[in-house]
Each structure stands twice: as structure tokens, then as C-alpha cells.
Computed example of a mutant assay.
Amino acid sequence: MKLKEFRELTADMRRLVNDWHACVDESERQLWRDRAYRFFPAFTSATSPRASSRDLENRLEAYRDCLGLLAIQRARVAIRDQAAMPRTSRYNKSPARAVRLSRAARGAMRRGYF
């Protein structure tokens, strides 16, 4: 790959990172994620024998910035999904709920309900 193309890919990755900060809502962030995942194969496979150490450092920094934003996005989605789950649903899956049910069942059996 030519050095110019290599540097343009790095500049495109930086632009992609900067574009994330312009996202207003979740739909735009989802579009940004899709765009980032489509861009990754071309970016990661790019090599240039003429690239200087500075070019490689810039490329690595842009790559880390983008990965950091994607990690933040994954964490936000996980938090959003957990928050979307009703409180009772989380409680019903908890170990405390199982303990309370077993105690209630034992009490009902002692009282002769079963």
C-alpha cells in the first residue's frame, strides 16, 4: 500500500472517532457503530513498508481511541438493557427470591396447605 493511502486511512479513522462526538441520540450512535465495524477490516489490514514510526504511532493511537469508544458503547447498551428490564423481573431471577419461595413453601406445608 502506498504511504499516502496508509496515512489517509489513519486520517479517516481519526475522523470516525471525531464523528462519534457529534452523535445526538442512540440511533445515530448505532449508525456510527455500524460504520466503524465496516471500516475496521480495511484499517487493520493496511500495511505500508514506507511508514515511519510516527505514522505507526498515529495509527495505533487512532485505533485505540476507536476501540475505547466502542467499549463505551457496549457498556452503555448493557446498562440500557439492564435498566429496561423491570425491577420485578430482576428480583424474580435473584437468589433472594428463591430463598423466600422455599421458606414460604415449607411454611405452607407445615400449616397443611399442601
Score class of each variant (00 low, 15 high):
M1A: 07
M1P: 03
L3Y: 06
L3Q: 10
E5L: 13
R7S: 11
R7A: 11
E8A: 14
E8P: 04
D12N: 10
V17F: 02
N18L: 10
H21W: 09
H21A: 15
A22L: 15
C23G: 04
D25A: 14
D25K: 14
E28I: 13
A36G: 00
Y37G: 04
R38K: 10
F39R: 08
P41A: 09
F43C: 04
T44Q: 02
S45W: 00
A46P: 01
R50E: 15
R50A: 14
S52V: 00
S52T: 12
S53Q: 14
D55G: 03
D55P: 00
D55Y: 08
E57D: 08
N58G: 10
N58K: 10
A62P: 01
Y63S: 03
R64N: 14
D65M: 10
C66P: 01
L69P: 01
I72V: 12
Q73H: 14
R76W: 06
V77Y: 02
A78R: 11
Q82N: 13
A83V: 09
P86W: 03
R87D: 02
T88F: 08
Y91H: 13
K93M: 07
S94Q: 06
R97P: 00
V99R: 13
V99L: 12
S102D: 12
R106G: 03
M109P: 00
R110H: 03
R111D: 08
